[in-house]
Write a protein that binds this DNA or RNA. Sequence first.
DNA 1: AAAGTACGGGG
DNA 2: GTGTACGTACTTT
Length: 777
Amino acid sequence: MPAQKGWLFDVYPSRDGMVLWLKTEQRCLRLIDPYWATFYLGGPDAALKQCAAYLSRQRLPITTKWTERKELLSDCFIPVLKVSTPRLDRFSTLVQSVYRVNPELTFYNCDILLPQLYFYETGLFPLAQCELAYDEAFRLTDFQLLDSAWEIDYLVPPLRFLQLRMEQDANPNHGRPTRLIASVDDREFVFEAEGAELLHGLNALLLTHDPDVIVTRYGDSYIIPRLRRLADAHGSPLALNRDGAAGIRGKQSKSFFTYGKIVYRAGAQVLHGRWHLDIENSFAVDETGLDGLVELARITKLPVQRCARTSVGTGVSSMQLDVAFRDGYLIPWRKRLPEAFKTGSELLLTDKGGLVFQPRIGWHEQVGELDFSAMFPTIMVKHNISQETVLCDCCPENRVPEVGHHICTKRRGLVPRTLEPMLERRMTYKRLLKQPLTTEERERYDRRQSALKWLGVVSFGYQGYRNARFGRLEGHEAITAYSREALLAAKEIAEAQGYSLLHAIVDSMWLQKAGAMVQDYERLAADISRQTGLPILVEGMYNWIAFLPSKRSPKAPVPNRFFGRFLNGAMKVRGLEVRRSDTPGFVRCAQAAMLATLSTAKSSDECRALIPGLLDDLRAKVDQLREGRVSLAELAITKHLSQEPGEYKTDTILAEAAKDLASRGVRLSPGEEIQLVIVDSRANDKVSKAKAYALYDGSLGYDVEKYTELLLKAAESVLWSFGYDYARLKAMFPEGLSLRRNEVTEAIQPFSRLLRSRGSLAMTRDSRGNHEAEESK
DNA sequence: AAAGTACGGGG
DNA sequence: GTGTACGTACTTT
């Protein structure tokens, strides 16, 4: 009987069982595992018996068995009916039909996607190295796992890539049809968007190259749907999929509300036996690249293409399900409830219960910053905070400070058990990063640890889900109570040692003490760690840091508008224009350049000496704007629609641009991102204030003065501490020759997001506003 | 002045 | 699969 070693590349259900694709050095092998998927039913004996009888009358192969399994909340065994079927394609319809017949039964393990359930049950996971044995019909007969999801130095198989993108960098759904560019290795192929040549050319490329991964920009929302329509129209096949029997699974786009804002999720085009990754539709790929995606898929056990497209919260949830499943717990069906539902926040904001001490506005030198590392996840682990441990029946004496909830001391919670190995794993990567490594290794470990960090951040928010499978509001309250206690204690310890607090927010504090060196801060951090039981580290020492005031009331501090220079020359920037996604590239780069220049200065005096130069640069930028030498791509502003284009009550630039697109037949959904260029912000006669970037030919120019204003306001943020406010800057650059209708030069597009996908796998986004400046600069 | 609209998190 | 924070900044009415 043949056996093959390789990596588990793809897993999905089919009529005949679970399809497994094994990637070896040479090829990709399709096997089928005749796997029986199982769910459980609980309830009164009579009802269960009746249900078993109903199931025996079904025409599907189904087995039922009486057994006992543990319930999560009570930790007690309860009698349940185990229902299994090999017809994976009918699994969810089967659950639905049982529910229709007897909605009073309690359902368990029935709403978990089958590949996940398969992974939990077998111990396999995406990209696991394993040896699979199979018969002549390519049916799996045995397997051996040669890998562990917790392995640090795991191997990733060699993968072949095909990249697809449209010629224009803007969202093709919002623009005119352009040519399709396919690239393989370093070769590029350009196809006209219509016609049979495209299909033939692409098919030839797919067949000769046989890529494992198709990486696209806008593949989910535009390229693949178009290719499929084209193939249908010509009646010719399209070889995108590797599994000819399975087809491409399309998912509808949707808009939904979460945490106060509407989110748009593009549809999906999921391949079988081959991955399609749309970098414009993947948080994980965008933030942490392919390395982060593989790391997440391995430890969350979400199939790679699903992992690429879901929120990190889904990953956290999957890890918890895995732990619960392996411990033999029944997993309750999370029915969608119609009532209001509070979602977990990915923001660690003050209103969520974190403590803030407002900053001392202004310029400060010789400042140290201490940050609690992974504060919320660490609290959950340390204090055993989990759905089933908060307000337990057995430990009324173990109280949370302030809020008074009690937490179990007898039983280790599901959430801490999930988080603990993950925190440890991230620490291992961080330790590795301190050792001598090649650039490649450094980047890989850094992306992996960054992917893990997201899991930690989100797992806190998850506690706030009132009806989340493993969330609990009281757990959330307990976490923030512990965090306040820890920050307060840290402040007191620091002050007792002669430090004065400049600013503190949730898990970070900025301190000052004459003559204190890094070692002193290290010692302080060690003291705080010891006394609070939570690890706190020196984030860095600043030569200088500027805490900016509120723009509306210049005497009021705000917690998150500051920038400073670390001793090693790196800058930390929060709340400035560079950090905002709706700042045009031209302004963002101008401000980033100013900050980079300041980062070369180690003191207020050195900064002051740089100001004349900064003002010269600023003048050059203003001139560039006024002379119409800025490209549209640099002026494009990205914003998210909060509603349908027609629902806007006020004519803002965003509403105008959305209506511009809508009037030209572009369908837009709430939450969707659009790009616009301001043409004349003061137009109030219903003449366009703004144009959609994707469709704008530049004939109306751009609003020089508006962009100058944005530029000067960004400059104000940087120069405010040196006495330059907006009024003063404006006076220095009086409205000259105001060219409202400029000739626009289509210059090179240095801010094109395209750059991210060019090259083999340089797929992560440059972070906004973190400018690593070298000490030697 | 009031109402409408958008943004942010971490490293 | 997800179901509407809250404070700040800015624009429009």
